[in-house]
Computed example of a mutant assay.
Amino acid sequence: MTNTENYFKVGTIVNTHGIRGEVKIMAITDFAADRFKKGAELQIDTKQGFVPVKVQASRMHKNMWLVLFEGVTNINEIEKYKTHDIYVIGGAREALGDDEYYYNEIIGCRVIDLEDNDIGVISEIMETGANDVWVVSRDGQSDALIPMIDDVVKNVDVAGKLVTIDALEGLLD
């Protein structure tokens, strides 16, 4: 693993697919369609450093991205990268609008309510289609599911890693 300070993980090559050199990637990015589109530039993390690759083609298949990189013509050229992580360089990230955040900005944030009571730490983000749901790990309790909607999420301080919510009745039960 190399220094990933200015790199952001977008997925992991979990296997190869077929004999033409396609790989199955489990995406962990909020912009998978953009990350794996034709022409996208990615980095494969290896023990020797990052290996730059460019997407030649991609498609969704059984909740995984099947990706073919430019210059790869068969399974033997890509098999050595199974289980390796895929990154994008920090400058390649798109600017977000108000109330939009990258996963890595939200995961790890402490959550408090309007009275400054500690709720827990955001450990995961689930996409539901309607809105994201933030999974909050709580000490000695089951996880809380916080919908990313204006009625609940009142303030997000990315720099301070702090999220303030209005704990509506029944939300934390």
Results as ranks from 00 to 15, higher is better:
2 T>L: 13
3 N>W: 02
4 T>C: 10
4 T>R: 05
7 Y>W: 06
8 F>C: 00
9 K>A: 12
9 K>Q: 15
12 T>S: 14
12 T>Q: 15
14 V>I: 15
14 V>T: 15
15 N>W: 12
16 T>R: 10
17 H>R: 11
18 G>N: 01
22 E>C: 03
25 I>D: 03
26 M>D: 15
28 I>L: 08
29 T>P: 02
30 D>K: 11
31 F>H: 13
32 A>H: 08
33 A>I: 13
36 F>R: 03
38 K>Y: 01
39 G>A: 12
39 G>S: 09
44 I>H: 08
47 K>M: 04
47 K>T: 04
48 Q>I: 06
51 V>K: 00
55 V>M: 01
57 A>T: 11
57 A>M: 12
66 L>P: 02
67 V>S: 00
72 V>Y: 11
73 T>P: 00
76 N>Y: 12
77 E>D: 11
79 E>I: 10
79 E>F: 04
83 T>L: 13
87 Y>R: 05
88 V>A: 06
89 I>S: 11
92 A>C: 01
93 R>W: 05
93 R>A: 01
94 E>C: 11
95 A>V: 09
95 A>R: 14
101 Y>L: 06
102 Y>A: 05
102 Y>S: 07
103 Y>C: 03
103 Y>W: 06
105 E>V: 03
106 I>D: 06
110 R>Y: 09
111 V>G: 08
111 V>E: 02
114 L>A: 04
115 E>A: 15
115 E>T: 12
118 D>Y: 13
119 I>F: 05
119 I>G: 02
122 I>C: 07
123 S>W: 00
124 E>Q: 10
125 I>K: 10
127 E>D: 13
128 T>R: 05
129 G>W: 04
130 A>V: 08
132 D>Y: 03
133 V>I: 13
133 V>W: 00
135 V>D: 01
138 R>A: 02
141 Q>D: 10
145 L>H: 13
147 P>S: 02
147 P>L: 11
148 M>C: 10
151 D>L: 09
153 V>A: 00
154 K>C: 07
156 V>R: 00
157 D>L: 08
157 D>Q: 13
161 K>M: 07
161 K>N: 06
163 V>C: 05
164 T>N: 01
167 A>H: 04
169 E>Y: 12
170 G>S: 10
170 G>L: 07
